[in-house]
Design a binder for these strands. Structure first.
Length: 378
DNA sequence: AACGCAGCCAACCGCGAGGTG
DNA sequence: ACACCTCGCGGTTGGCTGCGT
């Protein structure tokens, strides 16, 4: 990450962060809210952390969700001293946490350039593409998605992609699943990504700036943090993981927002975007021209590469039902049928009939069959 | 209202690689 | 060469949520 950038930003804001966060009306907990209802466990000499515990001056180490106070301590320390040497950092900062925990909290949540929000079509494309090349190399994949953490990508893959594979009765790593991803989902995602780019290029006010609410609720992050909400899609789709903030009596959507210091040069002034301003809350991935070119090249390549038939069929297949005309067909056979239209373009998928896979409950707006035009094929 | 369930994600765990003395 | 330490990675778990019954 760009530490210098972060340092500048933190230096400018830190006092205010601390003042705001420590003020009586401010939240007692951060985005890891369970701490409010149930304070993090204090672990003395737990197995794996024995060495770290021994190394720590303190005999006890905290585990579980981070509190705002801990976040502030960590941010404060890193702003002043930089990151690295996590064990000594944890001690020096006065955190009763393992260095490992501090590092994780910083990298996955507090780091200024962490980008949060729903995974865009473009990002999904990239994840699918890169995973097809590198497998579960989450960190490597994350390097190609600015602001996304390996943890986030990993979670996305496990919860979203694998879910679809399960419903297809496919192994997520099977050639069959890859095949349908490449020939059905990715072309549609590519279209959506292009549409998203077109939308962004459409004439509009360059930066949506929404005044911060006049009244700051307990759930609001310190005012000096920029405040990006998730896109409406995600707000609707994401029904879980609000975690304990609600239990702590805090606003529902707090968890969706990130304490966020604007990297220099992205916007002139700190902006506070209303979390519910669906159209503007989602922070677009700042793609450079080079990025766009890269993606275009990537997907041109991918499209070509993906046209190569694979020796698949690892025993997985569509759900078969009594009226399933494809019952007994392998994925190879099914996909051979699917791609045997007048041309080999993915749009030929619209010419064929696929069985009803029972995807109705999978409509998450990102991979929905509606979006993928599959339901009309059933 | 109460309960169970599944989805989601932050945090933890175990391990290996690399650096240092 | 060895031990120790730090760091980073991928896998897993725990806890919170909304939804359905």
């Amino acid at each position: 990450m760009d530490m210098d950038m972060a340092m500048v930003s933190f230096d400018e804001d830190l006092d205010q962060v601390l003042a705001d966060a420590m003020s009586p009306g401010s939240s007692a907990t951060s985005s890891a809210p369970a701490a409010a209802a149930a304070p993090p466990a204090v672990v003395a000499g737990s197995s794996e952390d024995d060495e770290e515990a021994a190394a720590a001056a303190s005999a006890d180490l905290r585990r579980g969700p981070w509190t705002v106070d801990e976040d502030i301590l960590l941010v404060n320390y890193i702003a002043a001293h930089g990151e690295g040497r996590w064990n000594s950092l944890a001690r020096s900062a006065g955190l009763k946490r393992t260095g490992k925990s501090c590092r994780l909290r910083w990298l996955n949540y507090l780091r200024p350039d962490v980008r949060r929000g729903n995974i865009t079509a473009e990002e999904q494309l990239l994840i699918l593409d890169l995973h097809s090349r590198w497998g579960n190399r989450w960190s490597k994949i994350a390097q190609h998605l600015p602001g996304r953490t390996d943890n986030e990508i990993k979670n996305y893959w496990r919860t979203r992609v694998q879910k679809h594979a399960r419903h297809l009765r496919c192994d997520v790593n099977s050639a069959s699943f890859r095949h349908i991803v490449r020939h059905v989902w990715m072309p549609r995602l590519r279209e959506r990504a292009q549409a998203d780019r077109d939308d962004q290029l459409a004439p509009q006010s360059p930066v949506a700036v929404v005044q911060a609410p006049a009244t700051t609720t307990a759930s609001a992050p310190p005012a000096c943090y920029n405040y990006y909400g998730y896109g409406s899609q995600h707000l609707v789709q994401h029904q879980g993981a609000h975690h304990g903030l609600q239990a702590a009596g805090e606003a529902h959507h707090h968890h969706h927002h990130q304490y966020y210091n604007e990297p220099a040069g992205q916007t002139a002034a700190a902006t506070a975007l209303s979390p519910d301003d669906a159209s503007s809350a989602l922070r677009p991935l700042s793609l450079t021209t080079d990025d766009a070119s890269h993606y275009a090249a990537t997907y041109a390549y991918t499209s070509t590469a993906m046209a190569t038939p694979t020796n698949d069929d690892q025993g997985c297949g569509p759900t078969t039902t009594d009226d399933d005309v494809f019952a007994g067909m392998t994925w190879s056979e099914l996909l051979a049928t699917a791609t045997s239209g007048p041309d080999d373009d993915s749009t030929s998928m619209s010419m064929i009939s696929l069985p009803n896979f029972g995807f109705g409950d999978l409509d998450d707006g990102l991979w929905s069959l509606d979006d993928l035009c599959l339901q009309q094929l059933c």
